[in-house]
Amino acid sequence: MAAAAEQSSNGPIKKSMREKAVERRNTNKEHNSNFKAGYIPIDEDRLHKTGLRGRKGNLAICVIVLLFILAVINLIITLVIWVVIRIGPNGCDSMEFRDSGLLRFKQVSDMGVIHPLYKSTIGGRRNEDLVITGNNQPVIFQQGSTKLSVDKDKTSITSNIGMEFVDPRTQKTLFSTDYEKHEFHLPKGVKTLNVQRASTERITSNATSDLNIKADGRAIVRGNEGVFIMGKTIEFRMGGNMELKAENSIILNGTVMVSTSRLPSSSTGELLYDDGWMRYKLCSCADGTLFRVKVESRNMGCQTSSNPC
């Protein structure tokens, strides 16, 4: 050790050629095997973050999913338009749009609910029939409160504001419910009119046919200037009571017959007075005035102190 110290203090130790070659070889081998040369370990959290992270990343995912859903819906709508409306390279095969706003169907079309615009018109070709059918459902045309329903066994029209049928060629009114401007005539072939309430000056029928007025509940006939009922034979059939009211008088001009087939009667032919009922006898004057007399005893006549005759 002392000899080596003396040599180092006197100057640098000279190495042989062989020692220098071995030292150079070891240095190159160390450099070639050191892959972390110049690497400085730094914490990743302290570095500058790039890209979409956190809430921005979730928002980006939501936007991508929404765009995907819109693309699928757009694809479905395109397929429906292509299959139903039959749009192809040559245009639309099932319908045709005119400059006047007319929409013409060139093939059989299957549709559900159609909402026409204001004052829309539906029609067919001049020499061809317009066929509208419903699959186990009635065909309904509705505009506001007015509705036309075509079923298998009936055709009904419902409206709260009235209706009017006009010939499109002559503009002549064929049928109208406007009582102030038109006289109410039923078209040919229509024999029954079902209404909840009607206001008119006169109701008549043909001379060779009867006029029948039927009501499920109550039938009330009123007239501002009186009610006049005329006919060859006038017959009233009631399920309940019939009431005639007048401010001044009721005039029955003609032969008046009252059917007693439905009036209550006793099986023994004698009236019973102990059942709690009050009975009256219908009497008539020579001028046709009718009045009633309370029956108080058997075989009682029409003589009374307050005889209107």
Rank of each mutant, 00 (worst) to 15 (best):
A198G: 04
N127T: 13
H48Q: 15
V295D: 02
Q137H: 09
R18S: 11
K56T: 06
E247M: 03
D167H: 03
Q7D: 09
H48A: 15
T173W: 01
V22S: 07
I213T: 10
E164R: 07
A5W: 09
I251A: 11
A246Y: 04
K152I: 09
I250D: 05
T78Q: 06
K154L: 07
I203D: 03
T50V: 13
M238G: 11
K232G: 15
R169E: 13
K281A: 15
L263D: 03
D167Y: 04
R98E: 12
R25A: 14
A3K: 12
V139T: 08
V65T: 12
L272N: 10
D110T: 13
T233P: 00
E235T: 15
E6L: 13
R222M: 10
R222S: 13
Y273T: 15
A21P: 00
I85C: 08
D99E: 13
S156T: 15
G162P: 01
T173C: 01
G223T: 05
S209D: 13
I114S: 00
T177P: 01
E30V: 10
T204G: 05
L52Q: 07
N58A: 14
G162Q: 04
S261E: 11
V72A: 10
S33A: 14
C309S: 04
T177F: 01
L102K: 15
G189V: 05
G231K: 02
C309V: 02
S205P: 02
N10K: 14
W82E: 13
K106T: 12
L252I: 13
K106G: 02
L282K: 04
S266Y: 00
K147I: 07
A4H: 13
I114Q: 01
S159T: 15
G91R: 01
N248P: 00
S109N: 07
C92G: 00
D210E: 10
V80Q: 04
Y273V: 08
R24M: 12
R262L: 12
Y280V: 10
S159W: 01
S209N: 14
S8V: 13
T50A: 08
G189Y: 05
L75I: 11
F228L: 15
L59R: 11
S261R: 09
M238Q: 09
S159M: 03
R55C: 04
E44K: 11
M230D: 13
A207C: 01
G112C: 02
S176W: 02
T177Q: 02
I87F: 09
R46N: 10
G123Q: 07
P116C: 04
S33C: 06
T155A: 09
E183H: 14
G162W: 04
H48G: 07
P308T: 03
G134C: 05
L70P: 00
G269C: 03
V166A: 00
E19L: 08
M257W: 05
G124Y: 04
